[in-house]
Design a protein around this nucleic acid. Structure first.
Lengths: 207, 207
DNA sequence: GTCTATAATCAGATAGAC
DNA sequence: GTCTATCTGATTATAGAC
């Protein structure tokens, strides 16, 4: 970010090292959040996982909540990148399905951070985070546009409020059905995703 | 349980008092589990809510896990009573819908305890609890029978494995869509239940 | 910025009198 | 069985040297 990067590569290098370390931290937090959730994750674990002292962690992130928030911001960025890289041709319904499929695969791969929907201190941090909120809003806007387009096309039921469709799609990212089926061991990941996709979009009722 | 209950009512009365207190504890735990979840719930809160000392609580239940387990056993009993009292005439699909509706109303009323799907110490306690497991199995068996009957009738899609249908129905009890819609304030409880019922059984796709 | 060592706090569980 | 008071351990967070 400095204006002398070409003359003082050392500074840039140092910055890169720091950034790399922060990325390592965020990856670790992301994994632990996916594995055990916010409350069960401890800062000690994060530090040990990254291989640095806990005090050093606190130089990068002022609190446990900020750690989780950073992981959520990272997730939002990944989502934005995924949305941006989606091909434009497919009809909106198919793009929505690709997104849902992606989030489920992320969850099955143990990379989908799971937050307690209740924890107030964490919620406060998330809501106060401009990066997180902006990312969430942009993702919601893009998906919301596709939902309305799909409803206009008649591929998604126009009777359901778009916000309900949006929440229903988001909720697939933390659907316990995925874990239960994975625990059952009767299906592989692809089958699980297909099954949940089918129940989500086609419903349980016969057609 | 003693064989002299008619001669020594005092014992019976004492027992009843104890049982009443345990019920009060379980109700409190149930409410707190619904409100904040297992990890955020503290034993101090439970004791304070019931109006007894924490040490007294530990005379009734040996650990926090056992507290939560008792609440889950209570929930299973409620479910069993609900199933047993359902009218027999309706077709299986309608009975399943009534059950799902009931669980959602319970959740919206703040009476559906929410457990972390990951916490291992709690899982161990639950799995070790005969009362809980038996209740869960019986409920699953009853619902499983209805699911297969509905699939045989052709009202529920026969292509979906029954276990997936069962999990999908169970998952409505902890569906974050319910909370999000409630937080949004745009719909009352009945509308929310109807919306989620519709997406669950009919799917998002237009018909 | 990174470390070791330590504070400060909170929550699950228990001791021991009554 | 119920209480007050306490223990114990875990966990978030920080002080201070380098």
């Amino acid at each position: 970010m400095g204006m002398k990067t070409s003359v003082t590569p050392k500074v840039s290098f140092k910055t890169q090292m720091l950034q790399a370390r922060e990325e390592a931290i965020i990856h670790m937090v992301n994994r632990l959040l996916a594995e055990k959730g916010f409350e069960a994750m401890t800062v000690d674990e994060v530090a040990a996982g990254v291989g640095i002292a806990k005090a050093s962690l606190y130089k990068h992130f002022p609190s446990k909540e900020d750690l989780a928030c950073a992981a959520m911001v990272y997730l939002m960025r990944r989502a934005q990148v995924f949305l941006a890289e989606l091909p434009q041709e497919p009809p909106p319904l198919e793009k929505l399905q690709m997104v849902v499929r992606w989030t489920m695969e992320l969850k099955l791969a143990g990379e989908m951070p799971s937050l307690p929907s209740q924890n107030s201190s964490l919620r406060a941090t998330l809501i106060a985070s401009k990066d997180y909120m902006n990312g969430l809003i942009e993702v919601s806007d893009v998906l919301g546009g596709w939902i309305e387009a799909a409803q206009a096309e008649g591929t998604i039921s126009p009777g359901i409020p778009a916000i309900v469709v949006l929440y229903t799609l988001f909720a697939r990212a933390c659907d316990p059905v995925l874990e239960f089926l994975k625990m059952g061991g009767q299906h592989d990941d692809k089958q699980i995703v297909d099954l949940v996709m089918a129940t989500c979009f086609q419903g349980l009722n016969a057609r």
